[in-house]
Amino acid sequence: MHTERTDVLVVGGGPVGLFLAALLAERGIDVRVWERRTDPPVGSRAIGIHPPSLDAFAAIGLDTAVLAESTLVRAGVARSRGRTLGTLTFDRASTTHPYVATLDQHRTETLLRERLKASVPGALRPGTALTGLTRDPDHVEASGTGPDGAPVALRAAFVVGADGARSVVRDLLGIGTTGRDYPDRYVMGDFADPEHASARSEALVDVGPDGVVESFPLPGARRRYVALVPDDAGFAAAEGTATSEPDPTVAHRLAALVAARTGVSPDPASCTMLSGFRVRRRQADRVGSGRVVLVGDAAHEISPIGGQGMNLGWLDAAELAPLLAGAVRTGVAGPWPGYAARRQGAARRAARQAEVNMAMGRPLGPVTATGREALLRTALALPTAHGLARLYAMRWA
């Protein structure tokens, strides 16, 4: 069996792995990406692209292409029981991108694939699954199966595990994780936008007593609704899926829940995506071993509430790429002082913020809900509210 050689093998061709590969290619590093999926990207899934990520995209000229297709969210509005509690604007959150961009994940992935293909044709290997790693002092031997089931082998100076929360790379390294599961359960769906035209550039968060409903504008006059749901509310069919052919019964159920909590009625017939998820937090005990490194969800999984997980992975990649490129050129492997501490520290901070977001959106009795509303109204009215905007825009990351 022929053994291919490359500088860096990235395992996982999702948004984080593709971005890292494109960054390395931009620096002249020979790179391959093994992606077990054979089909092109589909589905909406993660949508938020924060200012630091847009800044990082500029390194490969991707920021312009992403922004050309995105909707720009310039403010977030907090509501409860039909009343507006306050507005948080992003105009001071970033000097380069005073907004959060929203774009369906499949489009972001497609743009990343195209950018990588333009730099290194054939770098992405769909249908290739990693099955083994053998580490030597000056290289790593990777083995796997190709699209036809035949064995494949590759020798790389470095391997990066960008293969998600259930990382095969992490398992092969024997790296454990610590964390916890949360009781919260959410359902999200994309609908034709029923909000008033003036709200098309606003994210909306309703923190009423029955549980939170968040919504975000999307390209094509669509809006995503994310709702905290009780376990017995009949949403089990949506859990673990992100289908473009949503169950009509679940779409009606979600639309009715949104209407009951917010007074806004999405059209169930316009639903183009449904997904249900529970929440957990995990952090790898180490971000790698020798010439193998973990990034993104393989290194740190956080709650999707707040939309920061994918962006954390992109920022991992932005910091790791120059370190890897330097190591390839010098032949000297890490560790790189401070890298692991900085990236895992950023993940812990994002996870704590997500926990606060979840706590603020849980059901409360009428009296306690009134207290929460007063707290939010005061926080959003303070002169320091722009600091909250920077926090939500990940300007600390």
Results as ranks from 00 to 15, higher is better:
Ser265Tyr: 07
Ala101Phe: 05
Ala153Asp: 11
Pro266Asn: 10
Gly127Ile: 12
Phe90Gln: 02
Leu112Thr: 07
Asp267Val: 03
Ala298Ser: 12
Arg107Val: 05
Met360Phe: 06
Leu24Ser: 09
Arg180Ser: 07
Ala199Val: 04
Thr87Asn: 04
Thr64Pro: 06
Gly161Thr: 08
Ala333Leu: 14
Gly220Pro: 10
Asp39Thr: 14
Ile302Ala: 01
Arg170Lys: 02
Val287Ala: 11
Thr178Ile: 14
Ser275Pro: 06
Ala65Asn: 00
Met358Cys: 06
Thr378Pro: 00
Gly296Lys: 06
Gly76Tyr: 08
Phe216Ser: 08
Val264Trp: 10
Leu72Thr: 11
Pro248Cys: 03
Arg92Phe: 01
Pro268Thr: 00
Ala374Glu: 08
Pro137Tyr: 02
Arg200His: 15
Asp55Leu: 11
Val168Cys: 13
Leu257Gly: 02
Pro126Ala: 06
Ala347Ile: 00
Gly263Tyr: 11
Met358Asn: 15
Thr330Leu: 12
Tyr392Arg: 11
Val213Cys: 06
Gly387Lys: 14
Glu69Tyr: 04
Leu18Ile: 05
Ala21Ser: 04
Ala197Leu: 09
Gly61Ala: 01
Met360Val: 01
Val187Gly: 12
Arg261Glu: 14
Arg224Asp: 06
Phe158Asn: 02
His386Trp: 12
Thr177Pro: 00
Ala203Phe: 02
Thr128Lys: 14
Val279Ala: 09
Glu26Leu: 01
Thr6Trp: 06
Ser303Tyr: 03
Ser167Val: 01
Ser201Met: 03
Asp232Lys: 00
Gly334Ser: 07
Gln344Pro: 11
Pro366Phe: 05
Ala317Glu: 04
Asp285Thr: 13
Arg343Ser: 04
Thr96Met: 07
Val293Ala: 11
Leu364Asp: 06
Gly365Pro: 13
Val8Phe: 08
Ser289Asp: 15
Arg36Glu: 07
Ala56Met: 05
Arg395Ile: 09
Ala327Lys: 10
Arg349Thr: 15
Val152Pro: 08
Pro194His: 03
Arg342Gly: 05
Thr6Cys: 15
Pro366Met: 11
Gly234Arg: 12
Pro51His: 10
Val73Pro: 02
Ser244Asp: 14
Glu319Leu: 10
Leu376His: 10
Ser198Tyr: 03
Ser198Gly: 08
Thr84Arg: 13
Asp30Tyr: 02
Leu111Met: 04
Pro230Phe: 03
Ser167Thr: 09
Asp193Val: 13
Asp138Pro: 11
Leu364Phe: 09
Ser244Ile: 12
Glu202Ala: 15
Leu380Tyr: 02
Arg166Ser: 14
His300Asp: 00
Pro98His: 03
Arg261Tyr: 15
Ala236Gly: 09
Val16Asn: 01
Gly179Trp: 10
Arg349Ile: 01
Thr378Leu: 14
His196Ser: 15
Ala350Val: 12
Glu319Gln: 13
Leu315Gln: 14
Ala150His: 13
Phe277Cys: 01
Gly174Thr: 12
Ala59Glu: 13
Gly290His: 08
Arg113Asp: 02
Leu364Glu: 00
Pro137His: 04
Ala75Trp: 14
Tyr99Met: 00
Met1Leu: 11
His97Gln: 03
Pro209Met: 13
Ala157Ser: 15
Arg107Met: 07
Arg74Tyr: 06
Phe19Tyr: 10
Arg377Gly: 05
Thr89Cys: 04
Asp104His: 14
Thr368His: 14
Leu103Asp: 08
